[in-house]
């Protein structure tokens, strides 16, 4: 069975985010970029499915500027078989991303599409669900366990109040949550081998999708910062402050 994994290039999760002084966005100049952590989990899950003999081929796709090919190569080094780069310098919002991925799904006909549940830049948590709706597939979002069983996949989901398991007809879309797996690191020999794996580049126009953002960002600001309060000497003083100063107990 073929598995398609979508990955996004985002600011490295260890980097301290700084808002630009002119409030037009977040400063990404000379900032370390990396694969979105939830997408790493998606790649890892696909690789594990291949190691179990469930997946036969893993195709990894990324949308964005030329530099996204770094993240595709990373996925190839982790075990994906070939890459597709949809190259654009425009801002691609979730709905357009889903339409581009739909076009790839129609071409590649994967049985399973795995995506991260959200990217750590825009925090939208939309693309997987939108792709599922546009392609008429079922979805297992916020997955903590994925078990393929014949023509179905059982997905255990992290939901408010606990866990919920759904059975989906294949083909289906899965979006990953943090506890699905712990991604491996790429070994140097695999990084070298990944350079020789096939990577196709195409444009949104090649896929018949027009990039037309529906949302415009008017401004981006730093959050109001909290001031550090006081240190109390002991528990008795703490309870006294909570009762008589803050009046919250």
């Amino acid at each position: 069975m073929k598995v398609l994994v979508a990955v996004k290039r985002v600011i490295d999760y260890n980097v301290k985010v700084r808002v630009k002084p002119d409030n037009t966005g977040v400063d990404l100049a000379n900032v370390k970029m990396a694969m979105n952590p939830f997408c790493e989990i998606a790649v890892e899950e696909a690789v594990r499915l291949k190691e179990k003999g469930v997946a036969s081929e893993i195709v990894v796709v990324s949308i964005g500027p030329k530099a996204c090919q770094e993240q595709i190569r990373t996925a190839l080094a982790l075990g994906a078989d070939r890459g597709i780069h949809i190259e654009t310098d425009e801002e691609v919002q979730s709905l357009e991303a889903a339409k581009l991925l739909k076009a790839v799904v129609e071409k590649e006909e994967p049985k399973l599409v795995i995506l991260g549940k959200q990217s750590i830049d825009s925090d939208n948590n939309q693309t997987g669900q939108m792709l599922a709706a546009l392609t008429g597939m079922g979805q297992g979002t916020f997955a903590s366990e994925v078990v393929v069983d014949g023509e179905k996949v059982n997905v255990t989901r992290e939901v408010d109040g606990g866990l919920m398991t759904v059975a989906l007809n294949l083909p289906a879309v899965v979006t990953t949550d943090l506890r699905l797996n712990e991604p491996r690191y790429a070994s140097l020999p695999n990084i070298m081998k990944a350079k020789k794996k096939p990577l196709d580049a195409m444009s949104p126009a090649d896929l018949g999708v027009e990039i037309a953002p529906r949302l415009s960002t008017l401004k981006v600001e730093a959050p109001a910062s909290r001031q550090a309060g006081i240190k109390v000497a002991d528990v008795a003083e703490l309870v006294d402050k909570l009762k008589n100063e803050a009046k919250v107990i």
Binding site: V26, S122, D123, T217, E221, A222, P223
Partner: peptide, 14 residues
């Protein structure tokens, strides 16, 4: 909020 609340965006929907 975006970037895990490290930035706050004002967004207009068309």
């Amino acid at each position: 909020p975006i970037y895990a609340g490290n930035a706050i965006a004002t967004v207009k929907a068309s």
